[in-house]
Design a protein around this nucleic acid. Structure first.
Length: 639
RNA sequence: GCCAGCGUAGCUCAGUAGGUAGAGCAACUGACUUGUAAUCAGUAGGUCGCGGGUUCGAUUCCUGUCGCUGGCUCCA
């Protein structure tokens, strides 16, 4: 019997039934036979040993295909497990899936240390050298259970027990090593190219903190060693840009053991922060926002009313004041509800847009803290828009527009995600549906692309998240827009309509930077500390060539300070080269050199960060140029 | 919170097989008066994260604690 096989180029060939895919590859070309690592049959990735059992579309995969690389990564995970089994007999195996850029494997019953990684890596190279064929075998459930219980592989046994009743159970064998696995895999271990074991970490069995803790080894793996080298280069670049390092070197912010997870802003960081807030304020005021300030500590009653006490309690700092329980606010919403409710509202005043740079505290797990990216205390650029149902769309559009306006200034492109109802949520199905539909409609109408993230919404409503992409391609979730029908309900918010009816407004929560602190961390890494002129903590450094020119340098200093710039003067008795080097290391956008020539001609010699010497300029024309840069929020060329 | 690693001068790091520590840079002082990424010399700076234990003696070994870093959502 013959089966018809449709290939990637559209051609159809026929083969005897039970022909292995590897033979299909050989029949096409010898190079394909040599390079194929797996195949896609009717859209499903399978082993090359898989036999044709009917007409099919077959696409052969090599290490040039992303799916092919993933197959290699998966086999590499098995090789790592095999190496571990050889070096540390008795180690038990949990799971070893492919992840972005590589794979991991979770182990138990052996204490690993980072020193073991080179040993394991060396053994892996040996296994690859030995080039064991990777053989798939189908087992009955009974045989599989027998096999793995004999080996006391408790995790594998649990996995088999949990497999659906009619699932085909397969094991893969390479040399002396066997692993329960659905595959597919490379034809042999010798086909593995570049890999590197990266780190060792704890991980819970099945991600559940109530279950056994395993040791996980992370690795990266690529089809080409140059790709692997590129990945390592990216990691080094990320390290170079690390905001924790730059924050210290540039005196932006600091952390103290006495305030874990709570950033302390230094003078330089504060300049950036003030500029960001000032910029956002100016855009918001044009759009009819007003600013408010609400207390950091509020009575427990309020949190019960808002629902936080039941849905967010474990993240809240609680304290007692005069025998009453209070909590530090983890969010600003309830305070803003109080403001809305402070007097009767007319339909005429809606929408009411109130914004706050609200300092919130959230008790995050101590182990999850990290720099500015994950903290316990931060300031949100929060706002709540109270509107009539018929105003929702316009308000949402305004918010999307504002976000776009702000992000584009930093050169960020972004991706949008719509998150829908989570399991732990409150409110009726109808309200949720209505809210999700409204968000979808606005997104569809504004013709932006977005992805749906099922079940990832807030407990009080669906949300739109914005993920910005930084200069080295990493994504950061920042802005969020959330539609909320619950809080108005819980707080009994009302407005008086035209016909004197009491109606319920809708609340839109939104933040653009998200956490201002974290956004500054992201900006620091995005610009590698070389901030655009308008937010640079020190914008201009004046460097005098020798003591004789200090008086003129001081004149220039006060001129530029008078023009509203952040300028300082380096008048130390140092050589000009030394002063320049220091200004460059501090990534100050402009350095002005002042010596005899400049004093005589009443000019300044201008050097720009990343570009070098620009020539001499009059202070007035320099000042005009700098004003223009502030106005246009120009980016520096080099970071 | 849990697992692993780490914690020595402001920063980057060395060191002690247990005998209370050192370099470079930064800081300070002096000399030099300097032309676009490091002038020279000198001075000062550390309860070796914190507490307890072992020891004649602990920064070093043990233990507890605090903090930092990487992970704990990618399901054979």
């Amino acid at each position: 019997m013959e089966v018809q096989v449709k290939l990637r180029d559209g051609a159809t060939r026929s083969y005897p039934v039970e022909t292995p895919i590897s033979a299909v590859a050989s029949s096409i070309s010898t190079s394909l036979a040599r390079e194929a690592v797996a195949a896609k049959v009717n859209g499903k990735v399978v082993d090359l040993s898989k036999q044709l059992d009917g007409n099919a579309e077959v696409e052969l995969l090599t290490l040039k295909d992303p799916e092919g690389v993933d197959v290699m990564r998966h086999t590499c995970a098995h090789v790592m497990a095999q190496a571990v089994a050889r070096i540390f007999p008795g180690t038990k195996f949990a799971i070893g899936p492919v992840i972005e850029n590589g794979f991991y494997y979770d182990f138990a019953d052996h204490a690993f240390s980072p020193d073991h990684l080179p040993l394991i890596e060396a053994e892996m190279h040996k296994i690859i050298e030995e080039n064991h064929p990777v053989i798939r075998e189908v087992l009955s459930r009974g045989d599989a259970l027998q096999l793995f219980s004999d080996r006391k592989d408790r995790f594998k046994v649990e996995i088999i027990h949990d497999l659906p009743e009619f699932e085909t159970i397969t094991i893969y064998r390479q040399g002396e090593f066997i692993d329960l696995c659905k595959g597919p895999h490379l034809p042999s271990t010798g086909r593995i190219k570049a890999f590197k074991l990266m780190s060792i970490a704890g991980a819970y069995w099945r991600g559940d903190s109530n279950r056994e803790q395993l040791t996980r080894i992370y690795a990266i793996a690529y089809a080409k060693s140059t790709d692997l080298a590129e990945h390592l280069r990216m990691l080094a670049e990320a390290k170079r840009r690390d905001h924790r390092r730059l924050g210290r070197e540039l005196d932006l912010f600091m952390f103290s053991e006495d305030a874990p997870g709570m950033p302390i802003f230094l003078q330089n960081g504060m300049h950036i922060r003030n500029e960001l807030e000032h910029f956002e304020r100016s855009l918001q005021s044009v759009r009819g926002y007003d600013e408010v300030k609400t207390p950091v500590i509020l009575n427990k009653r309020l949190w019960e009313e808002s629902g936080h006490w039941f849905h967010y309690r474990e993240n809240m700092y609680v304290t007692k004041v005069d025998e009453e329980e209070y909590a530090l606010k983890p969010m600003n919403c309830p305070g803003h509800m109080l403001i809305y409710k402070c007097r009767p509202r007319s339909y005429r005043e809606l929408p009411i847009r109130i914004a706050e740079y609200g300092h919130v505290h959230r008790h995050e797990l101590s182990g999850s803290l990290g720099g500015m990216m994950r903290v316990r205390s931060f300031t949100q650029d929060d706002a709540h828009l109270f509107c009539r149902p018929d105003q929702i769309e316009d308000e949402l559009k305004g918010v999307l527009d504002l976000i776009d306006q702000i992000y584009s200034v930093f050169g960020f492109s972004y991706r949008i995600e719509l998150s829908t109802r989570p399991d732990d949520s409150m409110g009726s199905d109808e309200l949720w549906q209505q809210a999700e539909d409204a968000l979808k409609k606005v997104l569809d109408e504004s013709k932006v692309e977005y992805r749906i993230n099922p079940g990832d919404g807030a407990f009080y409503g669906p949300k739109i998240d914005f993920h910005i992409e930084d200069a080295i391609g990493r994504m950061w979730q920042c802005a969020t827009v959330q539609l909320d029908f619950q809080l108005p309900e819980r707080f009994g918010l009302e407005y008086v309509a035209e016909d004197n009816q009491r109606l319920r407004p809708v609340v839109i929560h939104r933040a653009v930077f998200g956490s201002v602190d974290r956004f500054i961390g992201i900006l620091t890494e995005h610009f590698a500390g070389a901030f655009p002129y308008w937010i640079a903590p020190i914008q201009v450094r004046i460097a005098s060539v020798s003591d004789d020119f200090i008086p003129y340098a001081k004149d220039v200093l006060s001129d530029l300070q008078g023009a509203g710039f952040r300028v300082d003067l380096d008048a130390r008795s140092e050589k000009i080269g030394y002063k320049i080097r220091e200004a460059q290391l501090k990534k100050i956008p402009y350095t002005l050199v002042i010596g005899a020539k400049e004093q005589a001609s009443h000019m300044v010699s201008v050097r720009k960060y990343g570009e070098g010497h620009l020539g001499e300029m009059q202070v007035e024309s320099l000042s005009a140029m700098l004003h223009r840069q502030v106005k246009n929020k120009e980016l520096l060329v080099k970071q």
